[in-house]
Design a protein around this nucleic acid. Sequence first.
RNA 1: GGCCGAGUACCCAAGUGGACUAAGGGGACGGAUUGCAAAUCCGUUAUUCAUGGGUUCGAAUCCCAUCUCGGCCUCCA
Length: 519
Amino acid sequence: MTLRLYNTLTNQEEDFTPLDPTGKRVTFYSCGPTVYDYAHIGNFRSFLNADVLRRTLELVGYEVVHVMNMTDVGHMTDDDIADGAGEDKMQVAATRLLEAKKSGNLPQDASDIDPTDPYAVADFYADAFVDDARRLGLKLIHEADERPELMPRPTRYIEPMIQLVKTLIENDHAYLADDGVVYFSVQSFPAYGRLSGNSPDKIRSGEGGRVNEATQAVKKHPADFMLWKPDPSHVMKWPSPWGEGYPGWHLECSVMAMALLGAETDGVIDLHSGGEDNIFPHHECEIAQTCGATGQSHFARYWFHTRFLIVEGEKMSKSKGNFYTLRDLLAKGASPAAIRLELIKTHYRSQANFTFQGLTDSQRQIDRWSRLHDWLHKNSAAPLDEPGPLTTALPAFKAALCADLNVSGAIGTLNEAASRHDTSAQPPAATGAHTYADELRALNAMDSVLGVLDLQHQASLAQSDLDVSQIELLIARRNTARTAKDWAAADRLRDELLEMGIAIKDGPNGTTWSPVVSS
RNA sequence: GGCCGAGUACCCAAGUGGACUAAGGGGACGGAUUGCAAAUCCGUUAUUCAUGGGUUCGAAUCCCAUCUCGGCCUCCA
């Protein structure tokens, strides 16, 4: 089945075919997090969509080499290209950690880090990101346990960055300006603007309100962007032919993608993903740098961008109080599986609205799929006269994903099939050659892309963090009261559990419980 | 000012010219079940797709205009 994907480069949906002559291997680079702070759920929507794309590629039979960087070079808070004004971001992070340490608010796992060491700060947030990403089921994280090079760190690629800058100067794509900074010359690269539509003649310098007048003057064109800035005062700095300083922030992706994925293809890779804000300037500049050095017509052949997430109908911002990290949501009792589903269920090219209602919806959805999974597992030996509904629906599920990752459509086909199984009853009598194990396989194939059932299973194991014995004691006392028909006492115990954040359900096979999510 | 998206039921969200008398989930309502709830199971819930025109035998889907919302135009996923 051919995957159709929207390519930002051409502004249209295209058939996806990899560069690999055998048509099997796909090279995929994702712009990952900056590690100056905890990643928020908007970041994770982008990373999760990349994960869904990667899993879809695998479902249809490709072998994916997926790389995601973790940006640990300390950029500036007002990082306009020329000047790097403002504070060093790594310095800001360090100060934040130092203050937290003084006030005793430092997270448990950070109590022994040295906030004055920028590498330690970066490591701290990088580790936090890996933990978060693991909880949300990013497949890449598990691979990176064995192959850490799949999650490269720019600070370990400074030398090839310097090499790239040298090459660009030799090719007349870059120049050393009067302020000592090396800039890329956008006018030397006619394709500049192809990805974003912001060609040099269309760019209104300073329209975004963030450029520095003084630095614009030394550049040949206002859109020229920094490749190397000498600055001995920067927290993270390295020697270079242009003085001690730091690299331009677009450089890392070009260098690491070429080194890890494009070594045998002259720096050309199949797929590159990021958030919509990466289109310009970040990815535009990556293309210019990379192609300027390789002479190839393409850097990535397909560009995949996820739209922004808004929260409760509004742009997410700290001042509105709707800014959430994964940790914030977990603290409110949301499960990683529900968060994952909530973040992937809206088409990646639509703006998604994250809501607590949606989180509840997603959790219920997952509970139903889990119940179906358990039921199929329990009855896996039972025969079916014909291929079951999930088995029959699997091609339609794949087809939906192949239509530019129509996750909602795919979930629709799954639900339609799922509703044809009555999980509250025994499987109907049959004698055919098919079995419920086939149905289970189909469900698992679908979940290999959605990636929620394993997370849900892990979460139910992790509930042992709660005081289970206390909960079970209260439930036992309540059931004793119920047997004695002491309804008042039973209801009091139920309320008590609810106050602890535990909802209980009396089923035909006894009482079960689950944590309540609060908004 | 330039470029790019979006507006489908109470909410989330598919569908992008003909099997649409518009998927799926949540909610709500009715029924089964229950000490009462919750959960579960069954059923019902948009003659209509922001608005106004147009193209067409046929439009939620194409075109034009209008309104509304969002993003990018050198911090940002």
